[in-house]
């Protein structure tokens, strides 16, 4: 594996390798006073961010630093065409500086894949447009495995409901791909306007889709709430925040429909009161939202390690 562009790039063996490596690295770090491993000393990781995302950038930065890599943050906001340097020229510059890995966040779907034709180093997709965000899917699977499967093996038989703005969500696409690889069953839940046309066949084998959250919750082991941007209202994807919240928000009543063991996830940042009620987000037993952030660092360490160090 040279790049990580899509969660679909990983077969079951590779996906388990990433998750198992993340567990090992997590344990190796946990036992140390100085939370740092020497594994990637002398390697250079560039965080190339065309979109603001303090959370993802910080997580990658921490992951790289914990493996002793040198980290450069390169923020290039806006359209490459409208303003300044082209994506290709930026890529060639990074290549000339000797980047071993480029962690790319971009507003345009497919931009990280375009980068791979111009740089020799590994490209890691840290979220591209409305396409994918594979490390988010990995940290989500890691979290589910720890909570529900004792931190090992696959996710065979698990039922995961992904709820919200699937149309614009890179998290939903990556999660659907990875969870299916790991043996889980995914149901996408959204108002029809927020599902892409062709969603049922978008990954070949049919994807389960529902417009009715209440009917899905009683069999869900995991419910993953997606961020819904309120500006979608202006484009008539739904009439109002209130109506959205009533029909698709996870409140305390709906949480009560879940089986006892079920967990509640959210990739952040949350709109409290919109797609998720505060009492649900902060629920001590079910909510994994803070854990997901912690696990993100371990999973990204594993990805960097396997792409940069594991090959040697």
């Amino acid at each position: 594996m040279r790049h990580l562009l899509s969660a679909g790039d990983l077969d079951l063996t590779e996906a388990l390798l990433v998750l198992d490596t993340a567990e090992q690295l997590d344990r190796a770090i946990a036992g140390r006073d100085v939370k740092k491993l020497p594994t990637l000393r002398g390697r250079t990781v560039v965080n190339l961010f065309y979109e603001d995302s303090t959370r993802t950038r910080t997580s990658f930065e921490l992951a790289a630093k914990r493996l002793s890599a040198d980290v450069i943050n390169f923020s290039a906001k806006g359209s490459s065409v409208a303003k300044g340097e082209s994506l290709k020229d930026t890529a060639l510059s990074l290549e000339a500086m000797g980047a071993d890995a480029v962690v790319a966040r971009h507003w345009a779907s497919g931009a990280p894949e375009r980068l791979t034709s111009w740089v020799r180093g590994s490209v890691i997709n840290a979220g591209d447009g409305t396409h994918e965000h594979p490390t988010q899917a990995l940290l989500d699977a890691f979290t589910m495995r720890r909570r529900l499967r004792g931190g090992e093996g696959d996710l065979e038989g698990l039922h995961v409901a992904i709820v919200g703005d699937v149309l614009h969500s890179r998290v939903a696409r990556s999660n659907t791909l990875l969870l299916r690889t790991l043996g889980a069953r995914v149901t996408l839940v959204a108002p029809p306007t927020l599902l892409p046309l062709g969603v049922e066949r978008m990954f070949g084998d049919p994807v389960d889709v529902s417009y009715d959250l209440d009917s899905v919750l009683p069999t869900a082991d995991v419910v993953m709430m997606l961020r819904v941007q309120s500006e979608r209202m202006a484009e008539s994807f739904f009439p109002s925040a209130r109506e959205y919240s009533r029909r698709y928000g996870l409140d305390v009543r709906r949480m009560g429909l879940l089986p006892d063991h079920a967990i509640v996830m959210h990739p952040g940042p949350m709109n409290r009161g919109m797609e998720i009620a505060a009492d649900v987000a902060d629920h001590p037993k079910r909510s994994t939202i803070v854990e997901q952030v912690t696990n993100g660092v371990s999973v990204r360490m594993a990805v960097l390690y396997l792409l940069l160090g594991g090959a040697e």
């Binding site: 779907s109 497919g110 591209d128 447009g129 409305t130 396409h131 994918e132 890179r170 696409r173 892409p196 046309l197 062709g198 969603v199 066949r201 978008m202 990954f203």
Partner: peptide, 18 residues
């Protein structure tokens, strides 16, 4: 819109041209 609207645009995350 970026490409034909259908299963491929859904997967690629490119806005569909119906």
């Amino acid at each position: 819109a970026q490409m034909n609207e259908g299963a491929v645009s859904a997967r690629l995350g490119l806005k569909g041209w119906p």
